[in-house]
Design a protein around this nucleic acid. Structure first.
Length: 98
DNA sequence: ACTTTGACTAGAA
DNA sequence: TTTCTAGCCAAAG
């Protein structure tokens, strides 16, 4: 598959929506479970077709928030119960496993 | 058809 | 610990 199919996008959306409050997932995880070729595609989906998804629950594997207004994002995550330490999300504890 | 860009990642410095 | 580099894939100009 040379491009991202509807199926992949749909699955990625499902996965992201299935992440409960208090937990987060990474681009790589979503990509892996959705069958995407690369984590960048997850980012591409969130940027283009994922405007309806809880993009704030999808963070980089480094534990850093996405490159969008990160301050509000961290506050929102913390409010949902996501462990945030020193401006960094604790993936080790809140990473959702599908 | 080619080049640039991007909400990434893992590894190196 | 943080910052940089290279690899990565698809879309947009």
């Amino acid at each position: 598959m040379a491009s991202v199919t509807e199926e992949q996008v749909e699955l990625a959306r499902e996965l992201i929506q299935s992440v409960p409050p208090g937990e987060v997932t990474t681009y790589g995880d979503v990509a892996a479970h959705a069958g995407l070729s690369s984590p960048r595609l997850t980012a591409w989906i969130l940027r283009t077709d994922g405007h309806d998804l809880p993009w704030w629950r999808v963070i980089a594997a480094s534990g850093r928030p996405s490159a969008r207004p990160p301050e509000r994002q961290l506050d929102r995550l913390a409010a949902e119960g996501v462990p945030v330490v020193d401006g960094r999300v604790v993936l080790k504890e809140c990473r959702h496993r599908f």
